[in-house]
Design a protein around this nucleic acid. Structure first.
Lengths: 240, 240
DNA sequence: CGCTGCGTTGAGACTACTCAATATCCGTGG
DNA sequence: CCACGGATATTGAGTAGTCTCAACGCAGCG
């Protein structure tokens, strides 16, 4: 489990070697467990460490002064939740847990050493932040151009793909610990509308979604509805 | 003018030296001029070079199979429009010019050399892509939570700030070569609604906006309406 | 001089919102 | 054991924001 990140990187680029594996493993200063619904880092804070999600669910969100919130991304095990704070330092958004999480801490001084000594690994870390950005762009495209129903279908498709990579899909379904209020915050719609949209996906026979568990009944139908094209997840260089 | 990028980086980090300046200058293989409304790189293409915008306006956009388009970012001189293609290679979106542009080409093999030899400069390039991502998050927050009017005001504030950095603001105003149809594609609203929203900003006495030129009449009012907080642009380490 | 592209305006329709009520489930304390 | 409160999901009704369709004005240009 502790090599989750290395295995994820290796899947994209088989030329990473023992040296990189060890450097990553040694860059972890400690591991922590956080309860559900806890802010891990807040907007405007200046960071000296980054966090890798090893178990559980997390998200990032931004907020307006009047309290409106937007979930900006959802994270599954193997994701760096705030790697951007290594070069960028000051947070422009908040990172929070959605469930109980196990998290590995990478102090920036250790990442700095990697960036000085292992350019190839550094580019792979850079790449991780770029995949994040590609996902952001896809969400942006959805919020701007897809209907609420299409967006919801797209989110299900995306989470399904990303989770499948780390073995989080079982029996055509997966846990998704989001309340409908949070789902609304991710999709840019109200809680009430989120409820109706989930109901619509159910009525169309596309998903069964109950008690925080999503079961996909018709993946093709869902992808068709969502115009889902997984290219942006940059899964392509996966050999297996 | 050719040191636009170096000067921009220097503003964030004064420790860059002559070695970095020269490396950046030598990494340019050539400069090109592109006409307005030309696609510079298209979605799904695999790239072996990145482009720095030196003069003019460009944007990135994503599209759905049925033709709906979403402008994902707007670029001003000094911006790398597709630096992410260095580590990521395959484009997940299209880059297009909005006006006639002068562009410097950085072949990836030259960027690779920089990433092998100049870790500090590499982190600064990484940083550039992270600021892009922070801007994306702010757009996402806007599309999800801000009204069309607030989003429009926010876009004006953002472009104003970014342009001001490179000396593109004169007399409290700036050129913004977007048609209202394109503005709608950036804001996730229809062309007709874009027109009405611009009219509303005018009626409130916030901006004068005519013939592709925006004059800001009430910057504070605009920022207040937009809940604009420029932190995300990461301008902070600018000394002057 | 008649395109064509862009901006503007009106009217009616639709999506998603707010407010409000009700239903479930669950944990806690009496 | 049951009553209660809190969190979540569901449903209804009326409203606000935005959309589509359509028409028109204006300017630049071949």
């Amino acid at each position: 489990m502790t090599d989750l990140l290395f295995r994820k990187l290796l899947r994209r680029d088989g030329t990473l070697g023992e040296r990189e594996r060890v450097a990553l493993a040694q860059a972890v200063s400690k591991r922590i467990v956080a309860e559900a619904d806890v802010d891990l880092v807040r907007e405007d804070e200046v960071c000296d460490r980054s966090m890798l999600l090893e178990e559980g669910w997390a998200c990032r969100y931004g907020a307006l002064p009047d309290g409106r919130r937007q979930i900006l991304s959802i994270h599954v095990p193997g994701d760096f939740v705030d790697l951007q704070s290594f070069p960028l330092k000051r947070m422009d958004h908040t990172v929070a847990t959605l469930s109980r999480c196990r998290i590995a801490i990478y102090p920036h001084k250790n990442l700095l050493r990697i960036s000085e000594e292992l350019p190839h690994l550094t580019r792979m870390l850079w790449l991780m932040t770029l995949i994040d950005a590609a996902i952001l762009r896809q969400w942006l495209l959805g919020l701007g151009q897809r209907s609420a129903l299409e967006r919801t279908a797209h989110l299900v498709c995306e989470i399904h793909s990303r989770l499948d990579l780390v073995g989080g899909v079982e029996g055509g379904g997966f846990d998704l610990p989001l309340t409908q209020a949070e789902l609304g915050e991710a999709l840019g719609i109200s809680q009430v509308h989120a409820n109706r949209v989930v109901g619509a996906l159910r009525n169309r026979g596309l998903v069964a979604w109950r008690d925080g568990r999503v079961r996909i009944l018709d993946l093709e139908g869902l992808q068709e509805l969502a115009s889902f094209n997984p290219t942006y997840l940059a899964l392509e260089s996966m050999e297996r």
